[in-house]
Amino acid sequence: MLAVEGIDTYRGPAHILNGVSLHVDRQEVVCLVGRNGAGKTTTIESIMGFLPVRSGRILFHDEDMTTLPPHERAKRGIGYSPEDCGVFPDLSVGENLMISRWLGDTVARRRNGGPRPDAEAQAFGLFPEVRNLLQRRGLHLSGGQRKMVAIARAIMLSPALLLLDEAFEGLAPVVVNRFAEAVMKIKAMGVSILMAESHLGAATRIGDRLYAIDRGEIIFHGPPQAALADEKVVKALRG
């Protein structure tokens, strides 16, 4: 579904990603683990189209989208929940969700391929409490609520692939379990997930496959359990 083939990405003059390759298949949860600054967010942002890729290719459903602008990637079915959640602070939660529902509707109409799943029911099914926040402004949400809104908003697009950047960061352990459940539910909806994660523990619990990244290079690829056993990975993640 998603294939990243040997991409090199720079931030200004700094060479961040060095030949990163990875792939995500249908209905699969793939974790990208690494320390802060290892290149996780840069990878996600390259896939979303925020950073230009100097070499290599990014394919989605076999279409080369290396040079497409971010909004065209979203229209092709990529949902995104950034590290800072990106909830519009001066918009109500309802308006935040509305934007992606409109887009989801437009895209579904253009594709004309079968009925669109009830995106609203899906989003509220993940986090029923979001329903009670609809009138509240983004600015007045707690950290956990903001993450819920960001994920619900991405689901409203009815994406085929969801990019989650540090979805569990800063959450209380009890809440982390709810988010892990949500990830499983999203997968059950038929959505693939690529998530950037700094904790190997959380990643091994929910990932079907795992990539470890360090200093902009993929240093491991395989089943999560194998990562735990790999001394090089564990060492790189501890720093």
Partner: peptide, 24 residues
């Protein structure tokens, strides 16, 4: 209006607006 929401969203966070499919 719908365009008003789009306008306000773009003014607050143009990156996220683009990620939600808006042609900034």
């Amino acid at each position: 209006t719908r365009f008003g929401v789009i306008l306000r969203a773009t003014s607050q966070d143009r990156r996220m607006a683009a990620a939600l499919g808006l042609n900034v």
